[in-house]
Computed example of a mutant assay.
Amino acid sequence: MDFVRVIKNSNDLEKFIDIPKGLKNRKVEVIILPYTDKEDVEQVEKKSLRGALSKYKNEVLRAQESDAWSKAVVDQYENR
């Protein structure tokens, strides 16, 4: 991101910016950053990861998912 940072006498800025009394006749730091309008941010296309891993799905294993935890517990603790 491009920006500008300068130290200026506040008297030089009075014709452009309303300077508070506490900053008059003092050196001030001026930082200029690009403005981002809320509308510009909303125009950015939102991307979704939904379906990104669909090429790895296995329907045979998916059918066994609902019983997988209970079977694993039985296998591990059945003979204890």
Rank of each mutant, 00 (worst) to 15 (best):
V4R: 04
I32R: 01
G51I: 05
E65F: 05
N58D: 12
N11C: 09
K57R: 15
P34T: 03
E45L: 11
Y56R: 07
V44N: 07
S48K: 07
K57L: 10
N9F: 02
P34M: 04
P20C: 11
I7S: 07
T36G: 01
D40H: 13
Y35R: 01
I31Y: 05
I32G: 03
A72W: 04
A63I: 05
Q64E: 10
R62W: 07
A68Y: 01
N11Q: 15
S54D: 15
R26E: 15
L23K: 12
W69N: 01
A52C: 08
F16M: 11
T36E: 05
S10D: 02
I31G: 03
F3C: 07
V6H: 01
D2T: 12
K38G: 03
P20D: 09
K47G: 06
K21I: 03
L61N: 07
L53V: 06
V73E: 07
Y56I: 02
R26C: 12
K27F: 10
K27T: 00
A68D: 00
Y56K: 06
K47F: 12
N79E: 08
V60Y: 06
P34N: 10
V73M: 12
R5K: 14
S70I: 07
T36W: 11
K55F: 12
L49R: 12
V44Q: 07
A72Q: 06
I17Y: 09
I32A: 04
D75V: 02
K71S: 13
G51F: 11
I19D: 04
K21G: 02
I32F: 03
K57E: 13
N58G: 01
I7H: 13
Q43N: 14
L53P: 01
S48L: 05
M1S: 14
D37T: 10
N79C: 05
I7R: 14
R26N: 14
I19F: 02
V30M: 03
K55S: 11
R50C: 04
Y56V: 00
L53M: 08
N11L: 09
V30L: 11
P34Y: 01
G22E: 13
Y56G: 00
G22W: 05
